[in-house]
Nucleic acid binder design. Structure first.
Length: 585
RNA sequence: GCACCCGUAGUGAAAUGGAUAUCACAACAGUCUUCGGAACUGUCGUUGGGGGUUCGAAUCCCUCCGGGUGCACCA
């Protein structure tokens, strides 16, 4: 439709002998100002030194006569063209157009899909929790964003591979194992989640004890540090059977606990990469390029990125102790991804924005070594989940674990569901879906770059601008459809008897594909979240003010069709956010 | 200190350089005979300060103020 309007205007300009210009056709913020609006008159007037309003009137009368005469454009889909404000031309679509769009939504299974990434293979890495450490709400944020972006890309024609990258070795593991030896292993009867939680506590204990002891101005190495460093060495060289046993047990428990969470969250990873396996690959790359890209400095191997870009800085890749840093493992990881899927068009990594600068340095090093990957790496950074009381750190133990947040939220939902006489299993399933929706929506409703304040008191919302509100409106539409079936009123979008009024909801549903396209091109799920809130509000308003099911009403089949179209778009939209749409709640 | 990101009602957010800056929460006032009140209808209230570019600025540029993150052997 947008293209049709643009062409119409171009033709009008040609007839009026006005030079073609760049102009925009967009949806005005307020539906009062039409369905589409253009600034063409203002742009032309500026070039010609003319009065924008007068010019707009001229263009409009030309448009009107073209619409009447042209066989190409007289589709009866435009009902009104007006000049408004400082010289805007507002275009109002006709009921015929809206009714056609409802039919399109009902009949076209591929409605809402676009071809932005058609045929492309994309790997997206997100979540990245570390075994032996808690799954905190930052991981929840990365997971929600990564999963949503993955689904949006799929809906734009891409084949997406989901990847997870986990730190299975390193000091954090030694700290957790030190804590486990101090406190003993947990009760074997504990659930997987409780065991994982226990391991997280042991990690915090070890991390706390590892810190130096402060004595006035001086500081002293803690006795635990030596022990933890010794454990760390044994983990690397697998020399201690007892430690190996604890390691294998702890690794299995935490990975299983993560897997349980992914299931609740609706993520299924295709590939798992482990840091310990990336390290030797990265080391090989660094050593092969020593003297070319990397250089020695104070015994370490570094990359002086500022030589290539003054905004970048030097980073150590291999320490003076000959240990590979995270940077080196990241090199190995990227290469390994392209080795796993050689026909990958590009590879996306999703992390918090604190990693933005260092990723730029790594990407620079990589593109010097493998120029062919330069345009195939994309880093998406998001804001941080933060507490009112400063930065969250699993080292300090002041974390809200993701598992705890999910469980508490689900409990809240269960409380509200307890009066329904559905069976327990169904209730639990719905509570899970609604709880996850509340959490995910609170993350995805805003632009990914912003930080999210997590407030213990307010927690998660279920009303108004919330995930459950979206699900509620879907469930409501669904129950209307159920009732229509019973009354034997079949949805029919193209009957002659349609309501005189065009509802707000009709004016919004046809815009869904544009919203998805924009979300895909900017990697920003929040456009979809905002759009869904708008249509949910419009539908609830329609529902509240109109009787949909009414045998005596000839327009009832159309209203049922409209309800169908809404429920289709809502379900699809929720899916793109990684949120389930329960039939009832 | 240097680099990057960010300042929008009491709170959380939205807004391709476009119109009277949008939405929710909170607060206040209504709706409860129709299909699910996790709802609907209203009221209230906002672009950190100062310059500039533009027909037009929350948006672009400069500057000041305030916040966050990163900056050599952690991940």
């Amino acid at each position: 439709m947008k293209k049709v309007i643009k062409n119409l205007i171009r033709e009008a300009l040609k007839n009026l002998n006005i030079e073609d210009v760049d102009f925009v056709v967009e949806h005005p913020e307020d539906l009062e100002n039409g369905d589409y609006s253009t600034n063409v008159a203002m742009v032309c007037a500026k070039n010609m030194g003319a009065n924008p309003k007068e010019l707009a009137e001229k263009i409009v009368s030309e448009l009107r006569s073209n619409l009447k005469n042209s066989k190409r454009f007289d589709l009866g889909e435009i009902s009104k063209i007006e000049v408004a404000g400082a010289g805007f031309i507002n275009i109002y679509l006709s009921p015929k157009f809206f009714r056609g769009s409802i039919e399109e939504i009902l009949n076209n299974k591929k409605f809402a899909q676009n071809h932005l990434f058609s045929g492309q293979k994309i790997m997206i890495e997100y979540t990245d929790p570390n075994p032996f450490k808690p799954f905190h709400i930052g991981h929840l944020m990365t997971n929600a964003i990564g999963e949503s972006v993955a689904r949006i890309l799929e809906s734009s024609g891409a084949t997406v591979f989901r990847a997870n990258y986990q730190g299975d070795v390193g000091l954090h593991v030694a700290k957790a194992i030190w804590g486990l030896r101090k406190r003993g292993l947990p009760n074997p009867d504990f659930s997987t989640a409780a065991k994982a939680n226990y391991i997280g506590e042991c990690y915090s204990l070890g991390a706390g004890e590892y810190e130096p002891i402060y004595l006035g101005d001086a500081e002293k190495e803690s006795p635990a540090k030596k022990e933890i460093d010794a454990i760390n060495k044994k983990i690397y060289d697998h020399s201690d059977k007892k430690i190996n046993a604890i390691y294998d047990w702890g690794f299995k428990v935490t990975m299983e606990a993560f897997e349980d969470l992914y299931k609740i969250l609706g993520t299924k990873f295709d590939f798992y990469f482990l840091e310990s396996q990336m390290a030797p690959i990265g080391e090989g790359i660094v050593k092969d390029n020593l003297g070319k890209v990397f250089e020695e400095s104070d015994g370490a191997i570094v990359f002086k990125a500022e030589k290539h870009d003054p905004k970048l800085h030097t980073r150590v890749f291999i320490t003076s102790q000959n240990l590979p840093m995270y940077e080196t493992k990241e090199l190995g990881l990227t290469i390994e991804k392209f080795k796993t899927k050689p026909d990958l068009d590009f590879s996306i990594v999703v992390t918090a924005n604190e990693q933005a600068d260092y990723m730029r340095v790594v990407a620079r090093a990589l593109s010097l070594i493998y120029p062919k990957y330069t345009d195939k790496m994309k880093h998406i950074t998001h804001g941080m989940m933060r507490l009112s009381s400063g930065k969250m750190s699993s080292r300090k133990g002041n974390v809200v674990t993701g598992e705890l947040l999910i469980r508490d939220t689900i409990d809240l939902v269960s409380e509200r569901l307890k009066d329904h006489d559905w069976d327990e299993e169904q209730k639990n399933k719905i509570a899970e879906q609604v709880g996850v929706a509340a959490i995910k929506y609170s993350i995805l409703k805003q632009s990914i770059s912003g930080d999210i304040m997590y407030d213990f008191e307010k927690s998660i919302s279920f009303e108004g601008d919330s995930g459950p509100y979206l699900q509620y409106s879907y469930a409501r539409a669904n129950s209307v459809i159920e009732k229509a079936k019973k009354e034997n009123i079949l949805p029919d979008p193209h009957i002659q008897d349609t309501p005189v009024e065009v509802f707000e909801i009709e004016k919004m549903l046809y815009r869904f594909p544009e919203v998805v396209l924009r979300s895909a091109s900017e990697y920003e799920p929040h456009y979809i979240a905002n759009y869904l809130i708008e249509i949910a509000r419009a539908f609830n308003s329609f529902y509240g003010n109109t009787l949909i099911i009414d045998i005596t009403d000839k327009t009832s089949p159309y209203k049922v069709a409209l309800t169908f179209a809404f429920s289709f778009v809502m379900k699809k939209g929720l899916h793109l956010l990684g949120i389930e749409a329960p039939e009832k709640m």
